[in-house]
Write a protein that binds this DNA or RNA. Structure first.
Length: 570
RNA sequence: UGGGGCAUGGUGCAACGGCAGCACACCAGACUUUGGAUCUGUGGAUCUUGGUUCGAGUCCAGGUGCCCCAGCCA
């Protein structure tokens, strides 16, 4: 039956394409590749491609290569090579081996020489401006919509019919560093009239006198994406080269090279990239946020970098379920952050132990409770998981409760503590509010109440009900901690668009201190997840030191009351 | 006045010529020692115009809208 079928983690159109290739014999195995350029940190947007590549290989019993696309030494650094591997491994992705585009520079050069000898590539001496004009298009930056007749036929380069011997000589000398940057390029000889601009004699090699993070100063020419990616795929025996829709127009070129070279016929298949509301994906803007100190670093919990999500406390399993659960197509789409948050809650609800923590403390005094008495109340660690067991929480005469849990003048539908009202203190007693103490400014600084000794544990022998149960921490046992609450970093749903400075939310970080938590959290370690009852999911930040705990809010609990109050309903 | 890709509730997907379904969000209710979780229920969609067909979200033709491309970036 259907319920015995494992749920696929990859888009059906890709799965079907792979299955078909295997069936008709185009390939006898499956091998995919992750091709990050080591020029920045991984973010949630990369995860989609990573997971599709990973699961595509896995579901077909194949393997995955992690290949760094390091063809532009001006942008790439070893630091990112390491960070990307660390983050991908944290996500749970496993690869058969790590390779680099630069591993193939020698072989790739030999392939270029072959194309030159076949008369399919030539050295062009035109300037960049001349080449751009001859391609039959307007200068960069011109909008297509503004230019009715934008695309004109291209004009062949005056160097297009150079003799093979001359091309070979010039290419060799380009490689040896005899020419200045920008003075010459190697181009494929395809078709200057082709309506697909990428086929109008694309550049294969450009001269760059830049040291490469792996090959040092060996090379003075570096391959372009189009003259590297497909070739590397082929050299590695990659069967399915899965990439985002923006590469659809590159596919004819991808296939042209492999056909002419009679190389292993890797197949490129495209899918839509992930767009997530409120998430910044632009590397340039992300870098600016970090460099200008708007955020604390690449691992700031407000960022949707993998490092940020990790520090914020999002479990990798939640990221995987969220991304693969989107069920992908080739549609351009925008996924709501709320959907991601729902998956976070779902995962955390099952694994996070419950603790009581008061974020905005207000003193509650139980007037009829003995001064010197301390009772240990039994509390359930996780109602979703009985195996998590129980713990005890100390209870005494003076407690802290949440400021939000008391109102001197309660609004409609407010069930919590207010003068004359009785509520349950979670796992402890029922208490009835008897009065308040105010400071000179009229602020409530202390709430007074009496407790019913017959309701120990929160039970009511007489069967009476209260409409609210609130959390608390005993003052004399309370552990003071710092809590960081995060909100959206941006005020617009699509932060990659528009002016960065204009969309920063100035209140995206709220640091609360001191907050009081129950003593059971004393030995909590960085990365550990908890649910603070009635508040949200939190994890211990690495900034925590002995005796000084710092918590990050991963995501809040669903807040029905907050909604009622905000919309004024009820 | 170029080429390519994509159009299903607010959002993301499913339905592979046969009763338009799921998740998130929203709304209502039940239950509750978390205003959490859980359960139940309501509302809401096939871009448009034609055509083929007993029957079209699906096939065909035209139109419209959005996205990608004119780097010696990837």
């Amino acid at each position: 039956m259907e319920d015995n079928q494992p749920v696929s983690r990859i888009p059906s159109f890709i799965r079907e394409a792979i299955a078909e290739d295997l069936k008709n014999g185009r390939f006898t195995y499956v091998r995919t590749r992750l091709p990050p350029e080591p020029n920045g940190y991984l973010h949630i947007g990369h995860c989609k491609a990573f997971l599709i590549d990973y699961f595509a290989a896995k579901e077909f019993g194949g393997e995955l290569y992690l290949r760094f696309d390091d063809t532009n030494p001006a942008k790439e650094e070893t630091e990112f090579v390491e960070a990307i591997q660390e983050d991908a491994a944290w996500l749970g992705i496993q690869w058969a081996k790590v390779t680099f585009a630069s591993d193939y520079f020698d072989l790739l050069y030999a392939w270029a020489v072959r194309l030159v000898k076949m008369g399919l590539a030539y050295v062009d001496d035109q300037t960049q401006e001349e080449m751009s004009a001859a391609r039959g298009t307007l200068p960069k930056g011109t909008k297509w919509s503004e230019t009715a007749a934008a695309l004109k036929p291209g004009v062949d380069s005056p160097y297009r019919d150079r003799a093979v011997e001359e091309n070979l000589d010039l290419l060799e000398r380009m490689k040896n560093g005899e020419f200045e940057e920008g003075s010459r390029v190697l181009r494929a000889k395809i078709d200057m009239q082709n309506p697909n601009i990428l086929l109008r004699d694309p550049v294969m090699y450009r001269i760059m006198n830049v040291s490469h993070h792996r090959t040092g100063n060996k090379w003075h020419i570096y391959p372009m994406y189009d003259w590297s990616h497909g070739q590397n795929d082929s050299m590695e025996g990659i069967t399915h080269s899965l990439c985002s829709n923006e590469y659809i127009i590159h596919r004819p070129l991808y296939e042209w090279f492999l056909e002419k070279l009679e190389a292993f016929p890797s197949r490129q298949i495209e899918f839509s990239r992930l767009n997530l509301t409120y998430a910044m994906m632009s590397k340039r803007k992300l870098r600016k946020l970090v460099e200008t100190g708007v955020v604390r670093g690449w691992d700031d919990p407000r960022l949707t970098t993998l490092r940020g999500l990790r520090r914020r406390g999002v479990p990798p399993s939640a990221i995987i379920d969220f991304v693969t659960g989107l069920g992908e197509t080739k549609n351009d789409s925008w996924v709501e952050m709320a959907q991601f948050e729902a998956v976070m809650r779902d995962h955390l609800n099952k694994i996070a132990e419950r603790r009581m923590a008061v974020l905005n403390p207000l003193k509650l005094v139980i007037d009829n409770y003995p001064d010197d008495l301390v009772e240990e109340m039994e509390a359930i660690n996780n109602p979703e998981d009985p195996s998590a067991g129980t713990r005890t929480v100390p209870f005494s005469r003076v407690l802290y409760i949440e400021q939000d849990d008391f109102r001197e003048s309660p609004p409609p539908k407010y069930f919590r503590l207010f003068p004359g009202n009785e509520v349950r203190l979670r796992y402890a007693y029922l208490v009835k509010c008897t009065g308040v103490v105010k400071d000179d400014a009229g602020n409530v600084v202390e709430v007074h109440c009496t407790y019913d000794p017959d309701t120990r544990g929160g039970n009511t022998p007489d069967g009476r009900k209260v409409k609210s149960t609130i959390h608390w921490v005993a003052a004399q046992h309370a552990l003071p901690v710092e809590v960081r609450l995060y909100d959206q970093l941006f005020t617009t749903e699509r932060p990659d668009d528009g002016d960065l400075d204009a969309i920063i939310n100035p209140d995206s970080l709220q640091v609360l201190t001191p907050c009081y938590v129950e003593p059971a959290l004393l030995r909590a370690t960085p990365g550990e997840h908890f649910q603070f009852e009635r508040t949200g999911y939190f994890c211990v930040d690495p900034d925590s030191a002995d005796g000084r705990l710092v918590f990050n809010r991963t995501v809040g609990l669903r807040d029905t009351w907050g909604k009622i109050e905000q919309t004024g309903k009820g």
